[in-house]
Simulated assay, not measured.
Amino acid sequence: MNIKVRPATADDAADVCRVIRKSILECCYEDHRGDVKVIQGWLSNKTHEVLRRFILAPDAFSVIASVDKATVGFGLASGTGEVALCYVAPSVRFTGVGKALLAAIEDHAVRSGVEALRLKSTRTAKAFYLRNGFVPEGSPVFAFGIEGLPMRKGLSARG
């Protein structure tokens, strides 16, 4: 599989929206348990317009992953190292797409002088983040009716 990762543009918002929504609906059952109210809350800000604003935010770094020119993943982090979104299409789960997104975010963060990446992991993604060097940091938090586990990964400058 030839995974290509590049910075996201506003024109990617519709494809990004489809990937995120499908990932939440199909991959994150452990988190939402099929609860319609929880799913609606989680998806409430996953619209083309909101994602376009996220991509264009001046302090954001966002990337998309594609395979055969089809968008299959999206990652978004702030300039301070907060990873806000990292989703892959169900069809490419466990193929290295998520790892490629994280690597691009990490490389950008290191070049920007960020000392650590932080995020709030879902139950579904916890093992993925642990495999990629993140460690739990603090008590769980709740948003959109789901539990988020704060995690951190220290970064070192690369020469």
Rank of each mutant, 00 (worst) to 15 (best):
R6M: 15
A8P: 08
T9M: 02
A10R: 07
D11G: 12
V16T: 07
R18K: 11
R18P: 00
I20Q: 00
R21G: 02
K22C: 11
S23Y: 04
L25S: 08
C27A: 12
C27S: 15
E30N: 15
D31T: 10
H32T: 07
H32V: 11
V36H: 12
N45E: 10
T47S: 14
E49W: 07
E49I: 04
V50Y: 06
R53I: 04
F54K: 08
F54H: 14
L56K: 14
L56W: 12
A57L: 08
P58M: 05
F61G: 07
S62E: 13
V63K: 03
V63P: 02
V67R: 11
V72F: 07
V72T: 11
A77D: 03
S78W: 04
G79Y: 06
G81V: 09
G81N: 01
E82G: 04
V83E: 10
C86R: 01
Y87P: 00
P90F: 01
S91P: 04
T95R: 15
T95S: 15
L101K: 06
A103G: 03
H108M: 12
H108Q: 10
A109G: 08
A109T: 08
V110M: 05
S112Q: 14
E115Q: 10
L117V: 09
R118E: 11
L119D: 01
S121V: 00
S121Q: 09
T124P: 05
K126E: 06
A127Y: 09
F128N: 09
L130D: 13
V135Y: 10
E137S: 15
E137N: 12
P140H: 05
